[in-house]
Design a protein around this nucleic acid. Structure first.
Lengths: 208, 208
DNA sequence: TTCGAGTTTAACAAATATGTCTAACAAAAA
DNA sequence: TTTTTGTTAGACATATTTGTTAAACTCGAA
């Protein structure tokens, strides 16, 4: 109970901090507000994490890990035929973003406002991109030679997939009141968007 | 010189405020920093705009006007055949966002963090969407009946266009170091993205 | 039981940000 | 010239926010 309670306090602060930073950003977040949401005095927050900055770093590290995973999801299952593989990759990535709808905005904001911090992230993401560029690109090239799909730059393909999947969640609060009765239900709208994104990309890579 | 100088001070503050708010957001912006960038004392900022909030409102109003214009641009030239019209709409919208690359992030952030303020915007954008849904949708339906293009929900089409065009600029700081030598030149990358987005949407609406 | 490490609280300190006030100043009107 | 209106700078006030400190408490181990 004590050790679990100790872990728990720290975890409570982390959970409250995650929520606050993801919704309000670094500048909008308040350490007192985080402490209050976590049910501890604000001195406790400083006791465990020293400064707001260090607490933020903890959240950032955790979230960048998640981002790496999401990019990996786009790669799809290498044992499937290429078109099925891409289809599965889009679907998995869409689901990933649906599970973490606040994440893209957070990452975009933090990278734009503090570009200097992220050499590490760039290195890690860069490795993933290189994997993709090497492995998947040659597979696409071979499939294209066999006439199974259109020849295509894999980086461009990935940007398009991320655009379609991520923007849906970035702009959802903006679009929601404009969609009309048909789309008022979030689940239904997301299902239709997912299908639409898959359709759009599959047509893009279809040999014609 | 005097009257023009007076106008100029207010304009200087507005220009500095626009830059500060667009890059740092409301919470990150500092009135003293805005005043300094404008070359005036911070008392002047309060003299002209009373509060940070009111100064911010001025910028928001102006930027929402721009957003409305950008959505209108997607509609394209009604005198063109439908496929050409859509192609032109994508291109015009892409150029619009390229001219205002910081705007999407600003709007998304403000809407997420202060949803209550934007009934007015929603009404205005809602009218634009209705125009589109009525006018363009029926034109698309007719073209589809004539076999000129695929039958398609115009709202879904617009979301896809906005996704592809806007995300490019939202994520550019993130992607830039990952693109490799080929894309290192911003102008070249944007030209290729624009062509790719047009190709993607045209294939989506092409009758097959 | 007493010792001590780790935990917790409340009070305090310092910095920063927004906003106000007064007095000086400039330019145009009376 | 005097008055009036609007502009500007500097000092001041207030509130908020982050961060510190010292003392008290908890609980297991010696």
């Amino acid at each position: 109970m004590d050790n679990q309670g100790k872990q728990s306090k720290e975890q409570q602060i982390l959970a409250a901090a995650e929520q606050e930073f993801l919704t309000k950003g670094y500048d909008g977040a308040r350490t007192t507000s985080i402490a209050q949401a976590a049910g501890v005095t604000h001195a406790m927050l400083h006791y465990y994490f020293r400064t707001k900055e260090q607490l933020f770093e903890r959240i950032v590290d955790e979230k960048f890990e998640t981002i790496s995973d999401s990019m990996f999801a786009i790669m799809g299952d290498p044992s499937l035929p290429i078109v099925e593989r891409i289809k599965g990759g889009i679907s998995a990535h869409f689901d990933f973003v649906a599970e973490n709808p606040l994440l893209p905005r957070f990452v975009i904001n933090e990278i734009i406002s503090r570009p200097e911090r992220y050499e590490l992230l760039h290195k890690r993401i860069g490795d993933i991109i290189d994997n993709i560029s090497n492995g998947l690109q040659s597979e696409i090239d071979h499939a294209a030679e066999r006439g199974e799909m259109e020849k295509m730059d894999v980086k461009m393909l990935f940007i398009s997939i991320m655009s379609l999947n991520i923007f849906t969640f970035l702009a959802y609060p903006f679009m929601k009141p404009l969609l009309g009765e048909l789309m008022a239900d979030r689940e239904r709208f997301l299902a239709e968007r997912k299908a639409e994104n898959i359709e759009t990309i599959l047509r893009r890579i279809k040999k014609q």
